[in-house]
């Protein structure tokens, strides 16, 4: 009898860091409480003990944390900075978008920096511990933005991110940390920049990423009971964005729903729709649709939080509307 899946999404993040630290002396982990304490979410638990010269606690100084990592990267190191919550990266925004992101273009010297961003909401987390940041960082040239939705992707995307030459914003969804489990890290090892068809279908395509992949699959399961076959595309990387896979899927289904958990103005879902309309207008049988969070700060109370982000119900509603257009 096969063992029950027991490896969680956060295990994958921790073990990817462990393997990187063991195999690459130029890799180090820097962030608030990441040392002996093991991080606010325990994503670095045991790492300082195993690699005392490669894991360091930082002061509560997000700007300086990224600045320090950029300096270290100039010196050839491959720093992993843990933002305690992705929301707090707004304090480091300047160093990320103006220093790290512009550096290679300006000077020819790459910045192999990875910023781990624990993002997305969990019930009760409220406006400042729940935000999605992939859209805002994707706007800037010089950054790569990845959004793993599976245990295997959490592992392989982090490994590729840290070894890559460019600054990578690694968006790890907190809701998946302990809920999402797998038997192992073995996946298809798709590289950064390649999307995956999570669930094949023929009546409509949902293009999504991160935790919303799972909500989309739930919605697709429900609609299959009504006879609809919904294809779910997991972008995995929102920048660079795998337009080819998206376009090929829309060519098969003729209908597109772009789904994300970020705020609705602009962002990844708008980018997906814009590209499909621009390059694949002739493939579409209906106007493409978008579904995002609501246009308010992320609310605290679980009742409000659950209705702020897309849910299987709201995704089903949107898809039914799309299928009848």
């Amino acid at each position: 009898m096969p063992a029950a899946p027991s490896i969680t999404y956060i295990d994958a993040i921790r073990d990817a860091q462990r393997d990187l630290l063991a195999e690459h002396p130029e890799v180090f982990v820097y962030g608030q409480d990441v040392g002996k304490f093991g991080g606010a979410f325990k994503a670095t638990q045991g790492l300082q003990e195993a690699f005392p010269s490669q894991v360091y606690d930082s002061p509560i100084s997000e700007d300086a944390m990224i600045g320090l990592a950029i300096g270290a990267a100039i010196e050839g190191m491959h720093p992993i900075v843990e933002m305690q919550f992705a929301d707090f990266s707004s304090v480091a925004f300047n160093q990320i978008v103006n220093q790290a992101a512009t550096h290679y273009y300006r000077t020819g010297v790459p910045i192999p920096l990875t910023v781990r961003m624990p993002c997305g909401g969990t019930p009760g987390s409220g406006p400042f511990h729940s935000q999605m940041v992939e859209s805002i960082y994707s706007h800037y040239p010089g950054l790569v933005v990845v959004t793993p939705a599976t245990v295997a992707d959490a592992y392989c995307l982090l490994k590729e991110a840290v070894l890559a030459k460019d600054p990578v914003i690694y968006c790890e969804h907190k809701f998946l940390y302990r809920w999402l489990k797998a038997e192992n890290y073995r996946g298809d090892d798709l590289p950064i920049g390649k999307a995956r068809i999570t669930r094949p279908g023929k009546h409509a395509t949902v293009v999504t990423y991160s935790a919303m992949v799972h909500e989309a699959v739930r919605a697709a399961d429900r609609l299959s009971e009504e006879g609809w076959e919904i294809e779910v595309v997991d972008l995995r990387t929102v920048k660079p964005l795998d337009t080819d896979t998206v376009m090929a899927s829309v060519a098969r289904t003729g209908r597109l729903l772009a789904l994300g958990e970020a705020f609705p103005w602009g962002g990844v879902t708008a980018e997906v729709v814009a590209r499909v309309v621009q390059d694949g207008f002739h493939l579409l049988d209906a106007p493409p649709q978008r579904l995002n969070s609501r246009d308010t700060p992320v609310p605290y109370h679980p009742n409000l939080w659950a209705a702020h982000r897309p849910t299987p119900e709201s995704i089903c509603d949107k898809l039914r509307q799309l299928l009848t257009l």
Binding site: A64, G67, L68, I70, I74, M77, N94
Partner: peptide, 12 residues
């Protein structure tokens, strides 16, 4: 911004 960058170079 250069204070932390230089600090990082020394740290490395």
């Amino acid at each position: 911004t250069s204070l932390s960058v230089v600090t990082g170079m020394l740290f490395a």
